[in-house]
Structures are given as structure tokens and as C-alpha cells.
Design a protein around this nucleic acid. Sequence first.
DNA 1: TACAATATGATAGTATTACTATTATATTTG
DNA 2: CAAATATAATAGTAATACTATCATATTGTA
Lengths: 224, 224
Amino acid sequence: MEKLQIHIVISKELYTKNPDSSELGRKIICASIEMIDTLGFEAFTFKKLGARIGSNESSIYRYFDNKHMLLVYLINWYWSWIEYKLVFDTNSMQSADNKLKAAILLLTEKVDVDNSFSYINEVTLHRIIISESSKAYHTKAVDIENEKGFYKTYKRVVQRISDIVLEINPDFEFPHMLISTVIEGSHHQRYFSEHLPSLTDVTKGGNNIVRFYTDLVFKTIKKC
Amino acid sequence: MEKLQIHIVISKELYTKNPDSSELGRKIICASIEMIDTLGFEAFTFKKLGARIGSNESSIYRYFDNKHMLLVYLINWYWSWIEYKLVFDTNSMQSADNKLKAAILLLTEKVDVDNSFSYINEVTLHRIIISESSKAYHTKAVDIENEKGFYKTYKRVVQRISDIVLEINPDFEFPHMLISTVIEGSHHQRYFSEHLPSLTDVTKGGNNIVRFYTDLVFKTIKKC
DNA sequence: TACAATATGATAGTATTACTATTATATTTG
DNA sequence: CAAATATAATAGTAATACTATCATATTGTA
């Protein structure tokens, strides 16, 4: 039986030429994920990427204006993918409590299975999100880029889960703050658990991250 | 009456030549804070800094190997300053609850008074911490740098406040995760409130950040 | 005061980055 | 098969992130 193939569509503002539309474009995405993960975003360049995929630097510039745009593209792909999984996972659920639990699990758990969305390695991409994604919005151009819709998939995921929080407690004042705290927080905790363990309370596997944030969220939104 | 002057001492691993030991060094620190704030860390260079303070690029390299080291220095100065304020503020307090409240306030409030520690503008430095500090540890060299003590003042502050949490509830499993979540979270929320407001729940002034995290912490550590 | 040590400044030079522009050569499509 | 489009190759520019050298101040000490 053929595997169900879902296709994640990225909006046009986020690329110069759609990388999903050609062999070269897909190679750019696939190899850039590998390279940003191993080299780090600062040391990653289009020249090195070109050399790696046996292509020319100038050809890559036809897909993305610069490596920042490529990172923004990857981040949007990631959040679109999370949004898809969120809707899929919570679709059939009745209770808002269960929906929120599933959402927190999705946000905070380690991605360790590559679902093989064709050419994108989600495990590696998740590591990039953890280590590099804050660099995408910690830039002087953030306001202009926000207007252009560079962060909209992230914002959409936060909105969806905030709505679930309000289903549980309509009086809770800070649903967006809570959810963005969980997202950024869990990324930091995963990074710290590998590199700065004294900023966390890790046991092997780091699975207490899910438990910590689940507990924190439900205690925080509970009416007292 | 003369104002009490406290001097923040930064350990030797964090500079090549101590910027606090000369006029030029102090100008480097003072002007770099201004420039990183206005230009952003990426566009900030030693050449521009030299031009600004009427000094030569090569002279600045005698104090710091590169701009990354300068950023690490500023971050350590900030956390040493916070540690000093933390100890000072909570010293006379009896109840652990009050100590924790004071600590959360210190971590999450907006710095809006420049206490004029000589040549360092703490208001501007706080903005840099919010916008740029995660770039200091999101680097491929993080493990080596951690061994060299580049992040120790940050870790020390987290440790101190975690200890207060454990005073209140000795059974709480995740004090370090909780405190580092509050620190990173409040920085993100302040940044989002200015640039990506739909990720927060801001009212004017953004003072609900303090209230949100205070509430979150006390609810999370409470025994149920 | 003189001399030495140290700090700073000026200049030059290198490899790399982050592009832009142009032209040639494939490949696809009508 | 011609036309359109995509990719490759090459060259070039300005800026970055340094390193090295040498000259000139400034300061500290015998």
C-alpha cells in the first residue's frame, strides 16, 4: 500500500524561487538542513552549500536572497508541519484537557522519528529549530519581516493552542504568553540539557521536560 | 555625601586585557553597549567601534579577541550585577516566599533606571541581554566555552534562586528548569511585546510580565 | 631626569563572506 | 526544432574579521 503523502506548502513571500519546484531546490533544502546542523548557522555559507551539492553558488541565490531567508523558510516549514500534526492529533479529541495535553507533548517532546516527508529530515530540522531559530527573529529587521509574514506559521500555532487554553479556562489572562513560554522554554531546556546542564534538572533521556511543562501549564491555568 | 560605589569584578578568562583598567577599555565597553543596541550585534564591528571612539581597530583587539568575547563579557557583567542586586535585596528578608518574589521581580521587571555604575548604562545593557544574549551560547563552541567559565555568572544566579525555591518546597523536582524558564521566558516576552505582540498578551507598559511569571512560579511549586 | 617598558595608533595585508553581473551552456516546453 | 527557461562558470566588489609590523605616545622606575 502506498504511503499517504502530505505536502507542506510554503507561501511565496518566503522564497525567491520555490525550492520545492525543482530537483536543485530540493537538494538545497535537504543539504542546508544537514549543513546548518553540523556547521552551525554562522559558519554555513551558500558557497559551501554549492560545493556540497555539486552546484554553483549563483544558482542558490536564485532560490533565496541570503541564508537568513533560507533559515526563515525552514522555520516556517517546521511550524507548518507542527500545525499539521497538531490538527491531526487533536482532531478527534473531545475534551479540551486532552487536546492541550497532546499539544504540549507535541511542542516539548523530542523529535526522534524521521517521518520522511520526502527530502526533509525532521529530526535534524528540529535540532536546528532548537539551536538556531531564535536568530531568525533577533534581528534589526524583525518589524518589517513580521509585516511581510515571516513569522506567521509560528504565530498561528501559538494562537491555536491558546484557544485550547481558553476552552479550559476562559478567564485565563495570558494564554499566548503561556504557550510561547512553553515553546521557547522547552527548546532552551533541550539545548541546556546537552550543553549547560546546570541550568536544568535533567535525568537520562530528558523526558522530564514534557512532564515539567505539562504540569506547569495545568497548574498555571487552573482557577484557584 | 559620596555615593556608595560598588565595583563589579569580571574574571580574567573573559578578556585579553581588562577593559576596566584603562580609559580606552572603559570607552570600549561604554560605546559597544550603545552600538550593539542601535546597530544590532551582526552589524556591529570593531572597525565601526574604533571610528566611534576615535581609536584604532587594532587597539580594541588587545582587549577582546573578537566581538563574541566582548558580548560574553557584557553578559557576565550583567549577571554579576543582577547577582549583587539579588543578594542585596533579599539579604534582610526572613521568609523564603518574599525572597522568591523579590527574585522574580528582579529577573522579570524592566530595567528603567540607570544606576550609573560609572560607565555602564544598565538600561541599554538590559536591552542587549534581551535581544542578543542567546547568541552568546547558541554557538558551536558552547561546550568549550562553558568549560572555560563563560556562562558561570548566569549559572550562579540560577543556582541561588533555585535554592530559594527549594527552601519553599524541598520536594520540587525542577527548580533549575523553572528559573531558567522564567529568565529566558521573560526576555522573550519583553522582546515579543515590542516586535511580535501576537505571541504575548500585552497591555500598556508590559507590567503583566512580572505578574504572569510570579503567578506561574508559585502555582507550579505549590504542593498539591 | 633618563631610560625602559608598556600602551596606543597607523598602515598594510590576507582570506573569507556576501553578494552582483555577465555570459555560456544545458534542459525543458510548445 | 526553436524558444524559453534553468543552471553553470567566471569575474568582480565591498566589507568583515582578522594578523603583523612599526612608529609614536605615555607612564613607571632607577
